[in-house]
């Protein structure tokens, strides 16, 4: 870890005042401190935004959920309204990391964290995402890497919260010195061919100030499924969220998003098409899941993820449909 300055921001305006080039924003610090310890992030200044008042609120007025970026994963996991209405989000927050980390990690930090790829995280590898020439995962140890859109850089998006939030069509508010802008979360994340060195469209002078989830239509239920190698503190190998608007056993509308599959949360449109308007059965869920994987391009070590995703996707559908 390098020597750095510390700046405490007590308001959003404070952040802009101190956010010079080479600064890093710290909320819970879970990811940033790790990156600094590994020598991946070497900020000259660390701006602590954890104490900005009001940014950790979770409000559910008129069916719309507004989540402050400083709300912790524990707060999301335990929030009665989220659990009731936006079930998959609370489930994803509860399944991430460990109780201690969830108490510190913020949802904003969770969305903005850097990839967990072991080549990216190790300063001995000058990988493409860090400005080097090579994606070491292509011919290396890629058992946990992407099975879609993995040709340039094979990271998977690390955020557990992003998978349900994209599935729920969440938008985010970004605030910069010149004002605010809002965009769908799905559009916020970028593929390596768009930007190989960043995972999203956040500008250096901006911060994430709110996450908004639109009201869900009546009869909508959601479910999050995570599969990892272990249940204690492990990153998903396969993750799926199903948000289904059900009319008895018929799926009227479906939103299916996969995590740990691609460099961004991946909308499984094949599944959505396959199950919309249909009665949900185990067979349908399974065949729809297979459809989602047809375009997969597994790497040398991660073909097994196809079978795992098949299970995870069909389980998410079945559980959301309460079949």
């Amino acid at each position: 870890m390098n020597a750095f300055e510390w700046a405490d921001a007590c308001s959003i305006q404070d952040v802009f005042a101190v956010n010079v080039k080479g600064s890093a924003i710290k909320a819970g610090g879970v990811d940033l401190v790790d990156l600094m310890k590994e020598g991946i992030a070497n900020p000259a200044r660390v701006i602590n935004i954890r104490n900005i008042a009001g940014l950790n609120q979770i409000n559910m007025d008129a069916g719309v959920a507004k989540i402050g970026p400083l709300a912790t994963l524990s707060a999301l996991a335990e929030h009665a309204g989220l659990k009731q209405t936006y079930t998959a989000l609370a489930q994803a927050a509860a399944a991430a990391a460990t109780p201690q980390i969830r108490n510190m990690a913020t949802v904003g930090g969770n969305l903005l964290q850097r990839p967990r790829c072991w080549y990216f995280r190790n300063d001995q590898f000058a990988c493409a995402r860090k400005g080097g020439d090579l994606c070491y995962a292509q011919r290396g140890e890629n058992q946990y890497h992407a099975i879609f859109q993995n040709g340039l850089c094979a990271i998977v998006h690390p955020s557990a919260a992003a998978t349900p939030l994209v599935a729920m069509n969440a938008t985010i508010e970004l605030t910069g010195p010149k004002g605010k802008r809002e965009m769908p979360l799905e559009e916020f994340f970028v593929m390596p061919n768009v930007n190989l060195h960043a995972e999203n469209k956040l500008e250096p002078d901006e911060i994430l100030t709110e996450i908004r989830i639109p009201a869900l239509q009546a009869g909508t239920r959601s479910h999050y499924v995570k599969q990892a190698e272990m249940e204690s503190h492990d990153w998903p190998i396969a993750e799926a969220v199903a948000v289904l608007q059900m009319d008895d056993k018929i799926c009227k509308k479906a939103s299916i998003v996969l995590g740990a599959a691609a460099p961004t949360p991946r909308r499984a449109t094949e599944v959505e098409t396959a199950i919309t308007g249909k009665e949900i059965t185990a067979e349908l869920a399974r065949s729809a899941a297979k459809a989602a994987l047809r375009r997969a391009t597994p790497m040398t070590q991660n073909r097994y993820k196809l079978a795992m995703f098949e299970a995870v996707i069909s389980r998410a559908i079945m559980r959301a449909a309460a079949i």
């Binding site: 072991w118 080549y119 190790n122 590898f125 070491y136 011919r139 290396g140």
Partner: peptide, 15 residues
């Protein structure tokens, strides 16, 4: 160990 470099890719308790 990474087969391309011989470096350990999981030298921590996360990986």
């Amino acid at each position: 160990l990474d087969r391309q470099t011989g470096y350990m890719v999981n030298p921590n308790f996360e990986q």
